[in-house]
Design a protein around this nucleic acid. Structure first.
Lengths: 181, 181
DNA sequence: ATACTGAGTTGAGAAAATAAACCCAGGAGG
DNA sequence: CCTCCTGGGTTTATTTTCTCAACTCAGTAT
């Protein structure tokens, strides 16, 4: 007897082992999608560098902070930089790499979305402002993310864009060995 | 005896119960920062609506998908829409709300970052393109996110922006009752 | 009657997050 | 010299989440 899998239960693997993540969004999330990672990057963008600073600002468990920093360093988002306070042993700071700084637009987008839909009743707690290079005038105006296409159409609304397959596209039944975290 | 907390161990709570998250980034991540949430939104932006579609595209466990969809609905990112195939019982689809569609820039930013640093050797698997409203010419050019300030300075590099306190800002030692997940 | 589908639910085991104690090197104070 | 204090972690135990895989249920299709 033992009718195994009689109905349309979850397929017995293999058939639907689709590559859910042959997409840079998924790859990106594998690196910075763990709990706390983006918040660590956010604090780093705001100037935090030392273990204790991150811990104090985020209030997270120290062991988890340690492993997250290691992960971010391994992924190339941060870099361990030795320092030594006068008359103290050598310690390390964690600095963003250029790759880490390039997460800024992502964080601004997330901030904007949060401000729009989940803001504190008193208004946003953080405003992102423009600090121009010092030869320029002081601007200080608030910054937003906008979608812009290569033909110069700018301020595209979300529904004016769509996902098209690119050169590295793989399709559903042919995928093998996905990136999976 | 019982010297509790003799060294600089983790502080016994209370003192450093800083609000780590009085910031819309943290609030946003509380909603869409769980594993799979942003991938579900991405698939929805790409046209997925039914349980099975999400499951087939993402390959995730069905129970987790069910709870994620519930969470996203509760958060206002998606909406349950009843439908009925001819001669079948009523079922539900999951559609993005406007709030959900507004996550597009976040996903484009993440995609761009992933493409820049973690791309497939064959190149990106997905390209975001411009689909103008039908009265316009067909554009189809690739889309990018750019940072732009209210004074009209555009294409700001990540280091040209900084975080300034906004009206809802709270500072470290006065915070109580944080949002925390 | 038996099988098949889409859309879930249930339950066991593995992995990750949290909380809180502990460790270690180098000063400072007695 | 001995003890305390600090910054930067590690260890251990508990709780929460995820994953895997089996099961359910309503309604056609065979």
């Amino acid at each position: 007897m033992e009718i195994v899998n009689p109905g349309g239960y979850d397929r017995p693997v293999e058939t639907q082992r689709i590559d859910p993540v042959n997409c840079s969004v998924a790859r990106a999330l594998a690196v910075v999608g763990e709990r706390w990672s983006l918040l660590i990057v956010r604090e780093a963008l705001d100037g935090a560098r030392r273990f204790g600073e991150f811990r104090a600002r985020l209030g997270m468990a120290s062991n988890l902070l340690a492993t997250r920093l290691d992960t971010l360093v391994a992924a190339g988002v941060m870099r361990r930089v030795p320092y030594q306070e006068p008359g103290d042993r050598q310690r390390f700071e964690y600095h963003l790499t250029e790759q880490g700084q390039d997460l800024r637009p992502t964080l601004v987008a997330l901030l904007e979305w949060g401000d729009k839909y989940l803001a504190d009743p008193q208004g946003p707690s953080v405003i992102v402002r423009h600090r121009p290079a010092d030869d320029d005038t002081t601007c200080e105006e608030p910054v937003k993310v906008v979608l812009e296409c290569a033909a110069g159409h700018t301020h595209l609304p979300p529904e004016a864009v769509y996902r098209a397959p690119g050169p590295g596209a793989r399709f559903l039944d042919t995928a093998r060995g996905p990136v999976r975290s």
